[in-house]
Amino acid sequence: MKYGYYPGCSLERNAIAYQQSTMAIAKPLGIEFIEVEDWNCCGATEYFAIDALAAYALVGRNLALASQQKLNGDRNQLVAPCSACFLNLYKTDHYMAEDNKLNANVNEALAAGGLHYDPGTVKVRHLLDIIVNDIGYEAIAERVTKPLFNLRVAPYYGCMIVRPASIESFDNPEYPTSLDKLTHSLGAEVVDFPLKAHCCGGHMTQISENTALELIRRLLKNAADYDADMIVTLCPMCQLNLDAYQENVNKHFGTNFHIPVLYFTQLMGLAFGLSANNLGLGKEFINAKPALDKISSEPLKKQRRKKRPPKETLPMPTMPEES
């Protein structure tokens, strides 16, 4: 399967492990990524605060290039692994379609550079979306040679992959489950992580560090309360904040968290039996090795049969999957 690919600035450096592991798992999954030629920054959350039209035009240039280069033919699907890039590309396309004036203005700006973009011509998708929906959990499970038995993983989605919601959103904006199911298909034990779609602090590390540290602390505390061995994520900003700022959190709050934060592609690579070197492992601040050492080759024996609840217990509501 061929896809257009927009790595975004973070994957070039800070999230190099995400880039390496994405490329590493692409081959066994039969995915070919064709990078948009001469792409530029998506503007993150910053450009929109200064000049809206310039920001939309900045993103528009990427869409125009992707549309022009027809990276995977008529499907023209553009994959972004970074949630902020994904949102900016997706939102620009969507807003240009919704708002005629914005569409006209963005195209007037693009024309100055000899470009044009018709909203709707490029379909923007997040890396996780194509992996779980185009490849599928079963196909992924089939590729697993070294299941991640006994590793307790908290799947962390952050914000911008699931919000703002649209009709086309591939997962629930409040309680997404795709990464949970993916992690499960790799053999790991999935933590039902209540804060899985809460904010990592975003750029507040730069603007008001105390605000950011508190948001990071909430996530780490919740993962620790749920006995997670590690957090798995899909966004460079989330990874950076939870990983690189973990020590700052410990200093600031007198806590003692040591929860490694890896990209889901890294866990997939490990489960596929790929070499750790090709997956960017070791680039994390909080060393993931002790957690990864917990992985056992056999699933742990089912811990004692579920105790029958006492007879007074009232039944829990049935959930859609069960009923």
């Binding site: 000049d51 039209l53 310039a54 035009a57 900045l58 240039r61 004036k101 203005n105 700006a109 100055a112």
Partner: peptide, 17 residues
């Protein structure tokens, strides 16, 4: 140069939308 032209134009159109 292309990007600069685009951004310059965008700013010249002005306003925000």
């Amino acid at each position: 140069p292309q990007l600069k032209k685009i951004l310059k134009k965008a700013k010249a159109i002005g306003g925000t939308t």
